[in-house]
Write a protein that binds this DNA or RNA. Structure first.
Length: 801
DNA sequence: ATAAGACTA
């Protein structure tokens, strides 16, 4: 492959008419000088790796290099994948602008929207979109080159794409219509790609780019404080009081912490409307605040070696030594005696679930004379870039979701971040000028305890769906797939077992260790849903039920579906929606169904405004419900295309389900969630385990531990004897289930028979004839569950004979 | 008597 010049070298160059401004700004990027090196490498190799930190310009420029070199000639496209939707949109717009081309030529395609068309030459997309395209066109014949951006983030989809693309590249080479693969990474940690013989027998060349980041000075704490929230507060206090203008970005682990620190800071450095309206300050950033009225003026530019800032005496404050500790090895922020002028601070919270209009405040300039301070979770590490950050305060921790591949139980933990993350966070201070990063932990701890990298996502998240998708792409032996880093063998086995239980896979009759996809599995894989929900959808053949199921499935597929910030409103709404009878038996899913029905109605009547109003009234989380609504529409469109006779409508109004429909919905939910069944402990069992009799304690079908109904569930009070759950998680060694629906035990052998074992038909009570139905009934001894079958005490089921 | 970080088809 190397050394041989392929047909790409003979491609006709495409002329580009850039504006002088673009030419000027491009010329500053270091990557521009490397165009020839990169293009030669691409021409001579089918696969190359480009390494360049943020600011190297690789994301915007490499697609343009390929375009200009003629890779989009002859009806072929250049495909670029991004891990996030916003990135796909914004980069496509930027590249269109730089090339002076329309968005017909340089387009994007993400899950719910896009502007691609027949003229598209460069197509930016999320990695999931490309993965779906491969399922219908395995050779990706529409493309001459694929660029995988941000491969170092090691998202599940991009890892799978690398594995599959390594094979596509070989196949395309054999057909002498080569596909070029450019893997782009922001870190040099590319061994998993380049030195993985299964992936690329010949290691692809690596091209390293320099970047245009400004230097960031790192300051470690001498000691690691116990309370990083208090320490962050002290540090911000000092920065704001002593250091020159420039925004502060603080990294914490969660929404609650963010809110706490924001309110503490707002109290300490209050901002009043008058602060900015009084000031008559133009571009001059260097005036000194001398009288109280001028509180809102910008910070004085101070010499870092000179801590005596002129201040009005009333504004001075002494911070005691012990609270702010004497343990810094940086000498830029004095710690012994703090002088403090109560200049206002423009404090903004930032986390993913924050409503969009509040999030976008970080992009607006702060009021005149105010310093901005953004208190954020991980969103600001990768997804959102805050302008003009000069100081980063990093608590060193991050919240991760841990997942037990055996039991599917998940748990949130706060752990030390990786060194790579710490670097990424620090880098956020050097986007527009040299900056500083204050790390609230010691360098010794950093060196000894912090892991080098984050684990690839595929090794930490459930892979059931990944495996189903791969099987549907005829990748039979998952263990021999060229993963950059393969998931654990046991994890794969467990996932395949669950898929067999769901009926999506079946054991091959000839080759014992291979599980084949079933027709049901193939249908399931067609939908952008997790296997459980995909199965429910496939079972919802009845058109009248389908619309209800679609609402339930879309809502449950969205993270943090319920509720919003208005907890009290939500409490009332919730109880009124699942109050009695069949509605109560459908439980939390009834609440979800009603909320989707209401939201959809509000959208139809008065659009986003209507939805906003509806969410405020009920306490629903608008961002999530909008996402669920979009998913509902996507699924409806997909169903209409595949089964035109269904003729589903995206905006039909829906009446609440009838009692019979509710029963059918519960049965479908059971069939989909058959491995998530729970039975309430009997009085005896409660006693034996020393649990108070009123507790909602359950055995789950695949666990030994006792699980409890989470407080958010509407079934917490009624405690149905049998139920299915959507989620199970652990908090402080206790297990909770939520997203509950009551089921009837006699449904188990009918709708979930794969996990139900009938042991024997009992003589006592005798089988009997039921006059009403004209059927024979008997009582059987049965067990349910696949992990510890005999853990379930034998349970009497009444069955129809 | 109330796990929630951030991504995605």
């Amino acid at each position: 492959m190397s050394g041989k010049i392929d047909s790409a070298a003979k491609k006709q160059p495409v002329p580009v008419n850039r504006t002088p401004e673009i030419i000027e700004s491009r010329s500053k990027l270091p990557i521009i000088g490397e165009e020839q090196v990169i293009m030669e490498a691409i021409s001579e190799n089918d696969v190359i790796i480009v390494v360049g930190e943020t600011g190297s310009g690789k994301t915007t420029q490499v697609p343009q290099f390929l375009y200009e070199a003629g890779y989009s000639n002859g009806n072929k496209m250049i495909g670029v994948t991004e891990p996030r939707r916003i990135a796909a949109i914004s980069v496509s717009q930027r590249v269109a602008e730089e090339l002076n081309e329309t968005t017909d030529i340089v387009s994007y395609l993400i899950r719910f929207e896009g502007n691609t068309g027949t003229n598209t030459k460069i197509k930016f997309m999320t990695d999931g979109v490309l993965l779906k395209e491969i399922q219908s066109d395995f050779l990706l014949n529409k493309y001459s080159a694929i660029i995988l951006d941000e491969a170092h983030e090691r998202r599940v989809f991009s890892d799978i794409l690398i594995g599959i693309l390594s094979r596509i590249v070989r196949l395309r080479q054999k057909r002498s219509s080569p596909l070029k693969l450019i893997i782009m990474s922001a870190t040099l940690k590319v061994d998993d790609f380049s030195k993985n013989q299964k992936l690329f027998p010949q290691p692809p060349p690596i091209i390293e780019l320099s970047s245009r980041q400004f230097p960031v000075t790192i300051h470690f704490n001498k000691k690691t404080p116990h309370d990083y929230l208090a320490e962050a507060y002290n540090k911000i206090y000092k920065i704001h009081s002593n250091l020159p203008a420039g925004a502060i970005l603080v990294f914490l682990t969660g929404k609650l912490e963010v809110k706490q620190l924001v309110s503490k800071l707002r109290k300490a450095f209050p901002y009043r409307e008058t602060d900015s309206t009084d000031s008559k300050i133009g571009s001059n950033n260097k005036c000194k605040p001398s009288i109280k009225k001028e509180i809102g003026k910008p910070l004085p530019d101070i010499n870092l070696d000179d801590y005596d800032i002129e201040m009005h005496s009333e504004d001075e404050l002494i911070i005691s030594d012990n609270s702010s500790n004497d343990d810094e090895d940086d000498d830029e922020v004095p710690s012994k005696v703090m002088k403090f002028s109560s200049k206002p601070l423009w404090v903004l919270p930032l986390y993913s679930m924050l409503p969009a209009h509040k999030q976008s405040k970080i992009f607006e300039p702060p009021p005149l004379g105010c310093r901005m301070c953004v208190v954020s979770t991980n969103v600001a590490e990768l997804s959102l870039t805050i302008p003009n950050v000069k100081y980063v305060v990093d608590c060193g921790k991050t919240k991760i979701r841990e997942y037990d591949p055996l039991t599917s139980v998940s748990r949130f933990s706060v752990v030390w971040e990786s060194k790579a993350s710490a670097n990424q966070r620090a880098g956020r201070a050097g986007r527009t000028s040299p900056g500083h990063c204050y790390r609230l932990f010691s360098s010794a701890l950093f060196n000894d305890e912090f892991p080098e990298w984050n684990l690839p996502e595929i090794q930490t998240t459930p892979i059931d769906n990944v495996i189903l998708q791969m099987k549907s792409m005829k990748i039979d032996k998952i263990t021999s797939f060229p993963f950059p880093t393969p998931p654990d063998k046991q994890t794969i086995l467990e996932a395949e077992k669950r898929l067999i239980t769901l009926g999506a896979l079946e054991v091959d009759k000839n080759v014992a260790e291979i599980n084949n996809i079933t027709p049901l599995g193939k249908s399931m894989a067609a939908f952008p849903l997790s296997p459980h929900y995909a199965k429910m959808l496939c079972l919802s053949k009845d058109r009248s039920l389908l619309q209800y199921m679609l609402f339930i499935i879309s809502a449950m597929s969205v993270q943090e579906y319920l509720p919003g910030d208005n907890v009290d409103a939500w409490k009332k709404t919730k109880l009124s929606w699942a109050n009695k009878g069949e509605f109560l038996l459908l439980g939390d899913l009834m609440v979800i169904l009603r909320s989707m029905g209401g939201a959809s109605h509000a959208m139809k009547k008065s659009g986003l405004g209507g939805l906003q109003e509806y969410c405020t009234k009920t306490g629903l989380h608008q961002k999530s419900i909008l996402e669920a609504w979009k998913l509902n529409n996507q699924l409806i469109n997909q169903l209409n295309i595949n089964v035109p006779s269904l003729n589903l409508n995206t905006d039909s109004d829906m009446t609440p389900p009838t009692p019979i429909q509710v029963k059918q919905i519960r049965q479908i939910v059971l069939a989909g969630m058959l491995d998530r069944v729970a039975r309430r402990l009997t009085t005896n069992e409660l006693n034996r385990n020393g649990i108070r009799p009123n507790k909602a304690a359950y055995y789950a079908s695949n666990l030994t531990a006792i699980v409890y109904i989470h407080n958010s569930s509407v079934l917490k009070r009624s405690k149905p004897e049998w139920l299915v759950y959507q989620e199970i998680f652990e908090v402080q060694d206790k297990m909770y289930i939520k997203g509950l629906t009551a089921i009837e035990p006699e449904w188990l052998p009918v709708y979930a028979n794969r996990l139900c074992k009938t042991l024997k038909v009992l003589d006592d009570p005798m089988p009997s004839y039921d006059e009403e139905t004209g059927k024979m009934f008997c009582t059987v001894n049965a067990t349910y569950g696949n992990l510890l079958t005999n853990f379930y005490p034998n349970y009497n089921l009444i069955l129809e004979l």
